[in-house]
Design a protein around this nucleic acid. Sequence first.
DNA 1: AATATTTGCTAAATCCATTTAGCTATCTAT
DNA 2: ATAGATAGCTAAATGGATTTAGCAAATATT
Lengths: 353, 353
Amino acid sequence: MRNQTVKKKVSIHDIARQLNVSSTTVSFVLNGKAEEKRISDEMKKRILDHVAEVGYQPNQVAKSLRTGKSKIIGMLVEDISDPFFSGISRQVEESLYKLGYKIFFSSTENNTEKTKELLNVLRERQVDGYIIAPPPGIESEIATLIDEGLPVVLFDRYFPNLNTINVVVDNFGGASLAIEHLHANGYRKICLVTLDSEQSQMKDRLAGYCASVKKHGLPSIVEKIAFRQTQDDTVKQIKDFLLEHKELDAVLFATNYLTIPGLEAIIDLELTIPGDISVVGFDDNDHFSLFSPSITAIAQPIEKLSERTVKKLISCLNREKGALKTETEVLPTALIIRSSSVPITPTDQHKTP
Amino acid sequence: MRNQTVKKKVSIHDIARQLNVSSTTVSFVLNGKAEEKRISDEMKKRILDHVAEVGYQPNQVAKSLRTGKSKIIGMLVEDISDPFFSGISRQVEESLYKLGYKIFFSSTENNTEKTKELLNVLRERQVDGYIIAPPPGIESEIATLIDEGLPVVLFDRYFPNLNTINVVVDNFGGASLAIEHLHANGYRKICLVTLDSEQSQMKDRLAGYCASVKKHGLPSIVEKIAFRQTQDDTVKQIKDFLLEHKELDAVLFATNYLTIPGLEAIIDLELTIPGDISVVGFDDNDHFSLFSPSITAIAQPIEKLSERTVKKLISCLNREKGALKTETEVLPTALIIRSSSVPITPTDQHKTP
DNA sequence: AATATTTGCTAAATCCATTTAGCTATCTAT
DNA sequence: ATAGATAGCTAAATGGATTTAGCAAATATT
């Protein structure tokens, strides 16, 4: 009659005691080892019935401690509130949930120190595997995880000199696609507004841009935005840049959180799209078709990316101690053509904004 | 020379053995109970130095098992890829991370059964507290958590007949704000497009709409959209609705994932905003200012909501067994006026789309 | 000097499940 | 009748921490 408020959870020992059997037997039955361990069908039934009746549920923490497995995956994204990452997170969570895994999400904010801490926390919690969009400077920590034989899959970006399993999109090809499209539509002074970043996805997009403009004998005009700055500063910087480069007739924004401030900058300057300047964004967005004009974009295959990432991780988790084949899977991007990049009209040709 | 691949983790016992002390002493020192337990400063230093040197880190799983605390919060949102929820998740994660808590996120998809399972998983994992945007039909499970004295904070929606701690926005007031604004700008046939849902936030928005139109003697025209249907079906339903109600001059969409299909429907019908129909969305979005026309919206205070939710949970977690005061905190919304709802012009008056 | 108190530390129990090693009783084969 | 096999179950160790109860030595008190 004492502890009414806090219901004591029943343990496997309570179950065993109530049935007058040993907890070993109960454990065997509950873990599907009845035959293997030669537990009689009668006993099995008795235990299962009673467990169902009292609604006993094993303490997962104790289980994790003993087995070293947690059925938890640690997932580190750059920013859970970014549509690209939250989209992937959602899909990954759904797939893994169906396989009985739970997920720890955290935002790294692309911050090396925070990520180190997060990895530490995940390790202490004995997560079974890792899905990571790594920030810069985290190579050695990732290498350590790999060395210890832990299942790790990197996505979105990776470290070319690290033997990891990676799932990324064809950033080089995506950027090329954008330039080819703009070029075909008559644009000749195409700039790239990108982040000042050494991460693989950004380097590849830059490389794709450079290769394409070079191929067509166009000038290479690149503006790099510092990573950690306010949205307002970014808008300001892009405005300044556009004012200094009045010759531009098109701009490719290298990532979704440059496209938005970029559009703001263009609107602030009262330039018309695509009359004064044509726009393509790397990374599509649900809303781009509702913008006016609608925004042409390089779409990343979010579903496919999630699916492949999960598949890789799962095969990693299930592998029988065998060495895991490290490989980088590259998924194709798609050009979604909308009105922000319609073919240049004769009268628009070489018009200065 | 054997186990090169799998580094054995050091335990507190290893530390104790290496220093020739008992693990009890090490534990006391590491948990800041040195004075309390009268451990000499000399011993304390010896232990701390050694721990730092070998980089020992306590196994959190073992710790959780013993203490019953996990330093993990379970957070259930409707959909982690929805900007409203991912925004809140991001903020909550950041705040709680600073306080040493990690978070389990999951998307309920507003699905009662999935949520029950999720709550079970969270309980088994011994999370220290819960932050939940509850789906319908989950009252008794929530009540159970409360009965067991577990820290629970509901947000965005709640159950009026349940004694929980809730943090929500003024949905009634927000909807009223929208109608007042539309009315003041000359609109007279204002409909509400909402979800067919009994959840508190939706009921309150509907009530706010009804009260406001009634106050001004306007007709009450409400279209309810089934919750679980495809975006395409939603667009179709809204189109049909608009075609059947050509008298409408303004529409309030009750939630962000109705505003987007709603705008699509309007574009498909080749209606102009706000010429043919004026639009206000409940729940603002970063992109609304870039739409053309830009979209007027009722903004929810995401930061404040996150902050208050975390604060409530923390005080719950830290409370000294005392009864927690159950209360519903209601935060104000703000009307962000943009061009989708500019004052009606004389020539527009009572124009039929 | 004898007793009481304080200091400084530790053995062992505990949290709850899994798993190894092994025991007893029954059955089979010779 | 007896050794060997098998069926059916369990005691105890284990994972890695925290925490209770308490011991021995040093110091203080009378």
